[in-house]
């Protein structure tokens, strides 16, 4: 590679680092942390077991878990999308 190093180093970081392809949040996930963060009444998602998040979204969608607002939001995501969001948060360190 004959390219100057600073640019290459950054591009490597862009591709593999915090914002890189493997680390891209699945569709919808980045909106969740507007509410779900440490200290919030809504609770943290980062570090929760995947199955727990999938189960919660499923129950909200089906109306079997009482909710003020998550019943309306969960309906915007199908099972596959919910699974991806759950895996994304489960893989993060709790914070």
């Amino acid at each position: 590679m004959r390219t100057p190093l600073p640019g290459l180093a950054l591009l490597a970081a862009l591709t593999t680092g915090a914002g890189g392809a493997e680390m891209r949040p699945p569709p919808g996930a980045s909106s969740c942390t507007g509410c779900h963060a440490e200290g919030s009444a809504m609770g943290v998602l980062a570090g929760r077991p995947e199955a727990e998040i999938v189960g919660a979204l499923d129950a909200f969608r089906g109306g079997t878990r009482p909710a003020t607002i998550m019943n309306r939001i969960a309906k915007g995501f199908d099972a596959q999308e919910s699974q991806a969001i759950a895996a994304w948060f489960a893989a993060q360190a709790p914070r």
Binding site: L11, L14, T15, G19, G20, A21, R24, P27, G28, S31, C32, G34, I73, G76, F77, E81
Partner: peptide, 15 residues
């Protein structure tokens, strides 16, 4: 970030 890295951005969902 995706565009700068020459990667196709994913179709998003927003809340």
């Amino acid at each position: 970030i995706d565009l700068l890295a020459g990667r196709e951005p994913e179709s998003p969902k927003l809340i």
